[in-house]
Simulated scan of single mutants.
Amino acid sequence: MPLVDRLDLTLRFVRESQRISLAELAERLGVSEMTVRRDLDELQAQGLVERVRGGAVALSAPREEAGFERREAWQAATKKRIAARAAKLVEPGQTILLDAGTTTAAVAKSLVSRAPLTVAVLSLQAAAHLADRRGIRLIVLGGESRPGERSLVGPLTAKMLDEMWFDTFVMSIGAVHRELGWSEFDIADAAVKQHALTRAEQTVVVADSTKFGVRAFAKVAALGEVGTLVTDKPDDKDTLAAIRRAGVTTLLA
């Protein structure tokens, strides 16, 4: 896993737990405690965490530090390949529900070539990419914009989802683990994804390989509850094998 991605995951884990041990971080990241110590030193130098005996505690920080804008440029080429491959699964004339996230924002750009489409979005970034595009009927679902991520969450979002049915839900994910399934770092985001899974004929997950082997705070679904995964070539072959055993069609971009 590239250093910038590992630092992002480490920061998310610390903020999720508020206080976390070196041993737990090492287990969840699949690295040595020595590596965790170095990463925590770097995050402390940036003023994002505080090192304590045996671990780290979260510090308040500007919301954009670990948000969408910071992550959008990371692995941009990989996300672009994943997005292009996922867009090919969409047929002109379909109704699409597009999740929030940096990879799904890239999918939004690729969907323009598949028009005409009706696309409902759970992300203000995706909405910006699709607004005023020829052949795209854009529906922005209501809800609360989550700070830093600009994902749309909450009861208003769920209520609007209840009024619609989609051919395909394109879902981003924070983590996927061979035993724990698909999970997210934020409860509100996880709740929207759980609801969206019930509103589409099929679900396509888009996720780069840094998400493999990671367990996040809030479970979204078991592995077999989605139909297709589009990813790059993961080093974590065990998780990939578990996903395939669960009956998920896996496409490598």
Rank of each mutant, 00 (worst) to 15 (best):
F169L: 15
E163A: 15
L98W: 03
G181H: 05
L117N: 03
T35D: 05
L43S: 03
D186E: 15
R199N: 12
R6N: 05
P147R: 11
L7I: 11
K237C: 07
L161Y: 00
L11E: 03
Q46L: 10
R51C: 05
R6H: 06
T157I: 02
D186Q: 14
Q18T: 13
L252E: 13
A253Y: 04
A222H: 10
E144M: 05
V170T: 06
D5V: 08
V49E: 01
W165D: 15
T249F: 07
T168F: 03
F13S: 10
L138D: 02
A175M: 02
V31Y: 06
R133M: 01
A216I: 01
A221S: 14
A105D: 12
E72M: 12
M34C: 01
R70L: 07
L48V: 13
V121Q: 02
E65V: 12
A73D: 07
V220T: 06
E24Y: 05
E225D: 12
P155I: 01
Q46R: 14
A191L: 11
L124T: 10
E42A: 15
R53K: 09
V226C: 06
R81D: 07
L180A: 14
L240G: 07
D162H: 10
E225S: 09
E42W: 06
A242Q: 08
D8S: 14
A131N: 08
A56F: 02
D208R: 08
K219F: 01
P147Y: 06
R15G: 14
A126C: 09
A246I: 03
L138S: 04
F166E: 01
D41H: 08
R71A: 08
D39E: 04
L252H: 07
L252M: 12
G227T: 00
R114L: 01
M1C: 11
D5N: 12
W182E: 06
R85F: 02
S145G: 06
I82D: 01
L122R: 01
V52R: 11
G54D: 03
P116F: 00
T168S: 13
L229Q: 03
H129R: 14
T250W: 01
V206Q: 03
T35C: 10
V119Y: 05
F185V: 09
K193L: 06
W165E: 15
A100R: 04
A126Y: 00
P2Q: 14
F68D: 00
K211L: 04
H129S: 13
R19E: 15
V90I: 15
D236P: 09
S60G: 12
R70G: 04
A158I: 14
D236F: 07
L223F: 09
H177G: 11
A100K: 00
Q46N: 06
A87R: 06
T203G: 02
I96W: 08
S17D: 10
K211N: 04
S151W: 00
D99K: 11
